[in-house]
Simulated scan of single mutants.
Amino acid sequence: MDELKKLPPVTRTLVGLVFLVTLPIILQLVSIYPIVFIPQRITTKLELWRLITPFLYGGKGIPLIFDAFLLFRGLNDLEQSHFGRRTAEMTWALILICGAILVRTINLPLHTPILYHPLLLAVTHLWAQTNPTNQVSLFGLINLKAPYFPFALVLLDLIQGGPGYALQAITGIVAAHLYFFAAVIYPRQNANSILSFLTPPSFLISTLGNGPTTAPTTTGGGGGWGFRPLVGRGGGQRLGATPGSGGGVRSTSNTPVAQAGGSGGVGSSATRQESTAGHRWGRGNRLGEE
């Protein structure tokens, strides 16, 4: 349980809900019908849970294991790097993305009762866009740049399930890219202007909190991932290196740094600079010397 508590809250909750909904259906303890997306049941019978549960049924068999692995790695990396553990902001981002998937599913219409796969592709695409330099291995056979990985998955969906299944996956990619454009590309092109609808509602912030105020990163610093772990995980930036030259968390003046040559004490770089700024120590004189 202690290891589970170490996981970021959004990742832990969403992956946990997927297994909570999926396993009873796999074990045939409950029927799948009450959880699927049926717009008529939502509007006429007010079965509002059907707006959420279709995103939580992960299927069965070997694909469930691979998909759960991809979902976990994508969510975990996004929550810790791009969203900087800002729980309310990431939760609101997922709500917006799922809402876009629902709208496109209804408008196409795709008649998609289960929406887990579009959500998986949305998370994968958002991760790929925020880690554009990462390398991803597909079955250990093909190495791809991260932005191409979601489209490789769509190609596999086309081969395995046909055009309809691939189109469902594309709805997730489109929804995630709309969010990425609004949250990252648009502010970058408009003097860091933030669109108001991207700000989490106050009740969500007061309920979940918004975690550390770490600025989001959009460059790849985490390890690449695909259907198996990859070699070539991005390294952290060395102290004194040029910003942006390596992945990982950037060091700032407020980051605790172990003092060189010390006994393991911890102090900030600013403190060390302040303590040495006004003193230059000479060789000193031996006792008895003039």
Rank of each mutant, 00 (worst) to 15 (best):
I42C: 14
C98P: 05
G240S: 06
L204T: 09
G220S: 08
L7C: 08
G84A: 09
R238H: 12
S269P: 14
G244I: 12
F139Y: 15
N210G: 02
A122S: 15
T112I: 09
Q129M: 14
R73D: 10
S206D: 13
I35K: 01
L239N: 00
I52H: 03
G16K: 01
R228T: 15
T242F: 06
G211K: 10
H111I: 10
T133P: 02
G211A: 15
A175K: 11
L204M: 15
L70E: 06
Q80P: 04
G221W: 01
T276D: 10
T214Q: 12
P150I: 07
I106A: 14
G222M: 02
E89G: 12
T276V: 10
H82D: 01
V18I: 15
A169H: 06
G99K: 12
H125A: 13
G224V: 06
T130R: 05
L158F: 11
T133E: 14
A100C: 07
I35R: 01
L230Q: 14
E290W: 10
R280N: 09
L138D: 02
E79L: 04
A146E: 08
T44S: 14
V10D: 11
L17P: 11
G164A: 11
V21T: 12
N131F: 02
L198H: 09
S81W: 03
K60S: 14
G16Y: 01
W92P: 00
G164E: 09
Q237L: 08
T124E: 13
W225R: 05
G265E: 15
T105V: 15
Y57V: 01
L46W: 14
Y33I: 14
I173P: 05
L204Q: 03
T218I: 09
S202R: 09
A277W: 05
Y33P: 00
T218P: 05
V103P: 04
H111S: 13
G232W: 08
W281Q: 13
F69E: 10
A277C: 05
D77P: 00
T112R: 14
R283V: 13
I106P: 11
P39H: 02
Q80I: 10
A100R: 12
W127K: 01
L178W: 09
S269K: 08
P132R: 10
I42P: 07
P229Q: 08
L119M: 09
S268W: 10
C98F: 00
I194N: 07
G161C: 11
R73Q: 11
S137H: 06
V154G: 04
F37I: 12
I62T: 07
A100T: 10
